[in-house]
């Protein structure tokens, strides 16, 4: 009996010993040296793995920065201080880069946009866009099922009253939402621009008014009120702020936009459902 135990202990012990030596041997013999510089760069990157740089993740970008000479400013979400740190480590000049933020160019929340149908399909903007465009009547506006909010790796997009709004202090400008929106409503703009015309409809102005109470009707009031070409009408009839030379945010009040399409980023973000009473007025 005791021999059995002894033999078992010996056999298991010897097998363990052999395997341990084998692992130690292979680990030493076939060791792949990881570049310590790549490791360090990866640590200095934000580690969000958002893919905004076009690489598969932070580790992939770190590899590209060290081995292929890609500029560290390819990272879209890195803060200015961290970029300075990283550039100092790599010994390259830090590139000045303006912070970008995503903006949803639509103000058609549920209580402002007219409804054309009850949508019961898959609750995803891309599916809804294929199947007749969801419940809202406007063929250009936010569908409101939040595929951008789900795509955002930072949770910067909130669905308020059936409209996607961006919180710029959380947004890091990676551009994931831009590619995912089936209506191409989201664009990256400099974060310093705080006033926009929140409408992307390319319909005739009267048709826009019919489907949304917050639509830009291309009346030109804001263009005249500004008078310096800082607000421009585009080819397809939509009005846009010139992001390179933006007007002051006070224009939102002084222009007297009849529909409220021209508004500050703050009011757009704070959008509230209109009570039914107010709508009847």
């Amino acid at each position: 009996m005791s021999t059995t135990f002894l033999a078992a202990v010996c056999v298991v012990g010897i097998i363990g010993l052999i395997l341990g030596c084998l692992i130690a041997f292979t680990a030493k013999k076939f060791d792949v040296e990881a570049d310590p510089k790549v490791e360090k760069v990866r640590e200095l990157l934000p580690g969000a793995n958002c893919g905004g740089c076009g690489f598969a993740g932070c580790a992939d970008l770190a590899d590209a920065i060290v081995n292929r000479g890609i500029s560290p400013s390819r990272c879209t979400v890195i803060s200015a201080a961290a970029l300075k740190n990283l550039s100092a480590f790599l010994g390259v000049e830090a590139e000045e880069k303006e912070k970008m933020t995503a903006v949803v160019f639509c103000g058609g929340s549920l209580s402002r946009a007219a409804r054309k149908a009850q949508y019961n399909g898959i609750m995803d903007c891309r599916s809804a866009n294929v199947a007749g465009g969801g419940g809202k009547a406007c063929a250009y506006g936010c569908i409101g099922y939040g595929c951008c909010a789900r795509a955002c790796p930072f949770g910067a997009i909130e669905m308020r009253d059936g409209l996607a709004v961006v919180h710029p202090e959380v947004c890091r400008g990676c551009g994931k939402c831009v590619t995912v929106c089936p209506r191409n409503l989201i664009r990256l703009v400099p974060a310093s621009v705080k006033i926009h015309v929140y409408c992307s409809s390319a319909d005739k102005p009267a048709a826009r008014r019919k489907v949304c109470s917050a639509a830009c009707i291309s009346c030109g009031k804001c263009i005249r009120a500004d008078g310096q070409g800082r607000v421009e009408k585009q080819e397809n009839g939509t009005v846009r702020i010139n992001c390179e030379n933006p007007p002051d945010i006070s224009l939102a009040e002084t222009a007297g936009c009849p529909t409220g399409a021209l508004q500050t980023e703050e009011t757009h973000r704070a959008i509230q459902p209109i009570s039914p009473k107010e709508t009847q007025k």
Binding site: T4, A8, V11, V12, I15, G16, L19, G20, L22
Partner: peptide, 17 residues
């Protein structure tokens, strides 16, 4: 002696390594 009763112990160590 028949050591087949140690098979679990041996297998898990062998597989892991």
């Amino acid at each position: 002696v028949n050591l087949s009763f140690t098979k679990f112990l041996v297998f898990i160590v062998v597989i892991a390594s």
